[in-house]
Design a binder for these strands. Structure first.
Length: 733
DNA sequence: AAAAAAC
């Protein structure tokens, strides 16, 4: 625990929502010492007095107002930064937290209590499942909404606190802060241990922004090579060729690669290799990813052969080992068989696809009056009970593609009639991140409710008792993330034995190292022979192992003509000096639209958000070092438009939908082309236009070329320095 | 190497 990185920190912070923990930590915490510590010169929290005012700094309006009062000199980024770190966050968080602490307990408790009690009393009476449950569960269901509804009022935590503070004048802040101080100190001590480790890494670098870049670069230097290699490793294993080369060749080469670019320079000498790698790689990778797209027809045979091995289907493929061909064959064939085009869907309605009236009506209310291609392609097969693999580009409507037919199927299976208080869940939707799970529920819940079914979210970072009580009351559809689901299973509070439909969203990612095994364990808990639906914008052979173990004769669907050429996204690459990165980003975000910035690390995301705030830009961050309440809140701030800039790690790369993000900036280039595609897919959704700007140092051009090639993206390269017309032009998009 | 995912 002590070292649990993000989680611990997350939990710790989240603890505020959870009295026991919070108390325990606080108890363990060194309240008094904390204060002292925070005030010590060496501490970030030092200058607590100043820190308080600075916190308010976050609000641009307040800044402006205060600027008169305070010398601008106080705000120096440093001061604020130092403060923020302790808070575990930024000024925002601090502000939010204070209100949060005061409000949070009430909030968390109230929603729960409110929801539970009313619900409970109601339900009994509801013996009438239909009406009653609906009425009630809305409340449950609306746990989200309920809290939301409430929050609005709180809602305005930000504004409220703001308004209050001014009124408080100095004293209020003081009184509050003392309390905060207690927290901070506690964090101070704790933080240093858990959180700070991460921050420490950065800050040293931040401390001096100039230095920060420096520290990062070293990391890049190393990382870049490393990242590449892993990729290479993946491919190579796949390459049967190397085997022919003997194992050594790959090995020897890699060492060279390790040297990174030296290796690359060598490659030139390898002359052949690069081409090979490309040929091989591109084909294979493309096969893996692209094949789905292009290769369906062509490569399938090979793939089928290749696909045998669970983990290295691709690798073995070229090779000649078809031994395990079974699983992959299925995939390949399925892929070829079904490609839906937009024209195929013209005039087709959801009703035509087999969905009932209530669901169709609800979909229309959700803004989906008629099916998108991927939806038209998969819904009939899902309703027919088949296992389905679905690939539709980012923002193409995959959630409804599995969510709507899933609900329809549960309803058909006499779910409503058999419903009972303690019934076990019959459907499970797994997502890689909490935010995505929450987002999926926002779409699926209303659809389910329209036919009298209930959903609940099961994910970590929040107290579990509400989730558990919901399960005890009985729910039909579970939407969540792997960790908490396994946790509740282990506790005997969640039984998946009646789950007859399981969905893996971002299925290829769910097969990545670290996710695969938990997912396998969970799938094994579900009803044998149950229906499985795997969806992703980059669905590839990576799912072969799951397909082989859990799917039967799956139908593979994709949408024809959905390539990058038909995309509504404009891709740009800015070749810059690393030291200019911060300033260039500041210039790029100096615009009206919503901007999502991706960073490779949590620490840099945090630092960059702070930097932008210091530069007068309303920005916030989203990454795993934040507690869940703040994660949710910060994402909501972008959604609501309270801020126009969100700096995030790849936690936001997949699935997250925020309307009208028209610019995605990759402050750090991604390592994998799939990551690029998913990050880029946060813009240009549902046919809208968007721009993706990737910042790279010139020595990364080669890698970037390779990545874009694998992604089948054509991007323009521009060398840029701060103040360049090219940068201003992008900012004026 | 990073990130995510439970407490």
């Amino acid at each position: 625990m002590p070292q649990g990185n993000s989680h611990n920190s997350t939990v710790g912070r989240g603890g505020k929502n959870f009295d026991p923990k919070y108390a325990s930590k606080g108890g363990s915490g060194h309240g008094g010492s904390n204060n002292a510590g925070s005030k010590s010169p060496g501490h970030r929290g030092y200058r607590a007095d100043e820190g308080a005012p600075k916190k308010q700094r976050w609000n641009a309006d307040e800044r402006a107002a205060r600027s008169n009062e305070r010398p601008s000199s106080e705000r120096p980024a440093y001061g604020s930064r130092s403060v923020r770190p302790e808070n575990g966050g930024r000024t925002n968080s601090e502000r939010n937290e204070r209100p949060a602490y005061n409000n949070d307990r009430p909030r968390t408790d109230r929603p729960a209590y409110n929801n539970d009690r009313p619900a409970r009393t109601e339900r009994p009476s509801y013996g009438d499942r239909n009406s009653a449950p609906r009425a009630e569960r809305p409340s449950y269901g609306d746990r989200n909404s309920a809290p939301r509804a409430e929050r609005p009022s709180y809602g305005d935590r930000n504004s409220a606190p703001r308004a209050e503070r001014p009124s408080y004048g100095d004293r209020a802040p003081r009184t509050d802060r003392p309390a905060y101080n207690n927290d901070r100190p506690s964090y101070g001590d704790r933080a240093p241990r858990t959180d700070r480790p991460a921050y420490n890494n950065d800050r040293p670098s931040y401390g001096d922004r100039s230095s920060a870049p420096r520290t990062e670069r070293p990391s890049y230097g190393d990382r870049a090579p490393r990242t590449d290699r892993p990729a290479y490793n993946n491919d190579r294993p796949a390459r049967t060729e190397r085997p022919s080369y003997g194992d050594r060749a790959p090995r020897t080469d890699r060492p060279a690669y390790n040297n990174d670019r030296p290796a690359r320079t060598e490659r030139p000498s390898y002359g052949d290799r690069a081409p090979r790698s490309f040929d091989d790689r591109a084909p294979r990778r493309s096969n893996d990813d692209r094949p789905p797209r292009r290769d369906f027809g062509n490569d399938r045979p090979t793939r089928s052969d290749d696909g045998d091995s669970k983990f290295y289907p691709k690798r073995s493929e070229d090779g000649v080992k078809p031994t395990f061909a079974g699983g992959e064959d299925v995939v390949l064939e399925r892929l070829e068989a079904i490609a839906t085009t937009a024209s195929d869907v013209v005039g087709v309605s959801f009703g035509d696809l087999g969905l009932g009236e209530n669901i169709v009506r609800e979909l229309a209310a959700l803004g989906a009056p008629s099916p998108f291609p991927i939806q038209a392609a998969t819904i009939p097969d899902v309703l027919a009970g088949r296992d389905v693999l679905g690939r539709g580009k980012t923002g193409s409507g995959k959630t409804i593609a599995f969510g709507a037919p899933l609900v329809e199927k549960l309803m058909e299976n006499n779910g409503a009639k058999d419903r009972k208080m303690a019934r076990k869940p019959r459907a499970l939707i797994l997502a890689p991140t909490r935010e995505l799970a929450l987002q999926i529920d926002r779409t699926v819940q209303p659809i389910a409710r329209s036919v009298g079914l209930f959903t609940t979210q099961i994910y970590g970072g929040v107290p579990q008792y509400r989730q558990v009580s919901a399960l005890q009351r009985g729910v039909d559809i579970i939407i969540g993330t792997a960790g908490r689901i396994e946790d509740l299973i282990d506790q005997g509070r969640l039984d998946l034995s009646e789950v007859v439909v399981t969905v893996l969203d971002e299925a290829d990612y769910m097969c990545d190292l670290g996710f695969l095994e938990p997912v396998q364990r969970i799938l094994r808990q579900t009803k044998a022979g149950g229906q499985k639906l795997l969806f992703s914008a980059t669905l590839d052979k990576g799912v072969a192992s799951l397909v082989k173990e859990f799917l039967t004769n799956p139908a593979v669907h994709e949408v024809a003509g959905e390539d990058q050429a038909s995309s509504t996204i404009d891709h740009r690459v800015l070749v810059i000096e690393h030291r200019d990165k911060g300033r260039i980003i500041e210039e790029l975000v100096n615009r009206d639209g919503k901007t999502l910035i991706f960073s490779r690390t949590r620490a840099y995301a945090e630092q960059l958000a702070d930097q932008l705030e210091d530069a007068g830009v309303k920005a916030t961050s989203l990454h795993g070092d934040l507690n869940q309440a703040r994660r949710t809140r910060n994402l909501q701030m972008l959604t609501s438009g309270r801020v126009n800039v969100l700096v995030a790690t790849d936690v936001a790369a997949r699935g997250i939908h925020v309307d009208d993000i028209d610019l995605v900036i990759q402050a750090d280039a991604p390592d994998e082309y799939k990551t690029y595609l998913h990050r880029a897919g946060r813009t240009g959704r549902a046919g809208k236009t968007g721009t993706v700007v990737t910042l790279i140092p010139k020595q990364r051009k080669r890698r970037m070329d390779e990545l874009l090639d694998r992604a089948e993206i054509d991007a323009s390269y521009t060398t840029a320095t701060p103040g360049d017309a090219a940068v201003r032009e992008l900012a004026n998009i």
